Amino acid sequence: MVPGDSAILSNLRRGALEFCVLAMLRDGPTYGFDIARHLTRDGILMASEGTLYPLLSRLRKAGLVDTTWQESTSGPPRRYYQLTESGAGALDSFIDTWPPFRDAVDAALTEGEHP
Score class of each variant (00 low, 15 high):
16 A>P: 05
17 L>I: 00
18 E>Y: 04
18 E>C: 09
19 F>W: 15
19 F>C: 02
21 V>T: 10
25 L>Q: 05
27 D>I: 06
28 G>D: 05
29 P>K: 11
29 P>G: 04
30 T>V: 12
30 T>Y: 02
31 Y>R: 06
31 Y>M: 03
31 Y>H: 11
32 G>W: 04
33 F>T: 14
34 D>C: 04
34 D>G: 13
35 I>K: 02
36 A>L: 03
36 A>C: 04
36 A>R: 08
37 R>N: 08
37 R>S: 12
38 H>P: 05
38 H>C: 04
38 H>E: 09
38 H>K: 06
38 H>M: 14
39 L>G: 00
40 T>N: 02
43 G>E: 08
44 I>M: 08
45 L>C: 12
46 M>G: 08
47 A>G: 10
48 S>A: 14
49 E>G: 15
49 E>N: 05
50 G>Q: 11
52 L>S: 00
53 Y>F: 01
54 P>S: 00
54 P>A: 03
54 P>K: 00
56 L>S: 11
57 S>E: 10
57 S>F: 02
58 R>A: 02
59 L>C: 00
60 R>L: 05
60 R>P: 01
61 K>S: 07
61 K>I: 01
61 K>F: 05
62 A>L: 05
63 G>Y: 06
63 G>F: 07
64 L>M: 11
64 L>K: 02
65 V>C: 09
66 D>E: 15
67 T>I: 08
67 T>N: 12
69 W>F: 10
69 W>Y: 08
69 W>T: 15
70 Q>I: 00
70 Q>W: 11
71 E>K: 01
72 S>G: 09
75 G>Y: 07
77 P>R: 12
78 R>K: 13
79 R>I: 14
79 R>W: 02
81 Y>F: 13
81 Y>C: 07
82 Q>E: 15
83 L>A: 00
84 T>S: 13
84 T>A: 11
84 T>V: 14
84 T>L: 07
85 E>I: 14
86 S>E: 14
88 A>W: 06
89 G>Q: 13
89 G>R: 10
90 A>R: 14
92 D>C: 15
93 S>K: 12
93 S>T: 13
94 F>G: 07
95 I>M: 07
95 I>E: 15
96 D>L: 08
97 T>L: 13
97 T>W: 01
98 W>F: 13
99 P>I: 01
99 P>Y: 03
